[in-house]
């Protein structure tokens, strides 16, 4: 009887030490439907990457360009991603340089890091910032300007957009 109790105890200890199976967290997020819709630029920033790397003060590191050109606010810019895979953009009075229309796709459906715009033989890859806020109607596009010989990022542009 005593042996049976020991055996049961050992069995209980062994099983209690087995790792729990990690339950599925949920469905993988499908960002494409979330990105569909019209997005308006709310903030446009320029970052001196070298100054940023040196921890220079804010005024020497980044500049808000949203309304820097009177009569030509970057906030005029809108882009509409349609569910059928086409897009249109409107720069309004801004100096924004974007393809006006064409097709859009994510570079990776599961783990997107960029939106690829194509129109005929022309294509434009727009890096995406964190997609955590897409669900609340916010997204960031990023553009990097690099030194050709070293590949070092010298200037960054951050486009913050809000869903209309």
């Amino acid at each position: 009887m005593k042996k049976i109790v020991y055996l049961l105890f050992i069995t209980l200890v062994v099983f209690s030490c087995m790792p729990d199976e990690i339950p599925p967290i949920g469905e993988k997020t499908n960002y494409k439907p979330m990105l569909a819709g019209t997005w308006q630029l709310s903030k446009f920033e320029q970052i001196d990457a070298e100054a940023e790397s040196k921890n220079f003060p804010e005024f020497a590191t980044r500049k808000d360009l949203t309304n820097v050109f009177p009569g030509h606010p970057y906030s005029d810019f809108t882009i509409t991603f349609k569910a059928d895979g086409t897009f249109t953009s409107a720069k309004g009075n801004s100096y924004m340089q974007f393809m006006a229309s064409g097709n859009w796709a994510l570079d990776d459906e599961q783990y997107p890091s960029a939106i690829v715009l194509t129109s005929g033989s022309t294509s434009q890859k727009i890096a995406l910032g964190s997609l955590a806020d897409v669900i609340v109607g916010k997204v960031q596009f990023k553009e990097e300007r690099k030194q050709p010989d070293t590949g070092k990022v010298k200037i960054k542009y951050v486009y913050s957009l809000t869903k209309k």
Partner: peptide, 18 residues
């Protein structure tokens, strides 16, 4: 960062940049 009599932002810039 060293303040200067004249500077540009960004400190180094291409002709396609603001």
């Amino acid at each position: 960062f060293t303040p200067a009599y004249f500077r540009t932002f960004p400190a180094k810039v291409s002709n396609k940049d603001v």
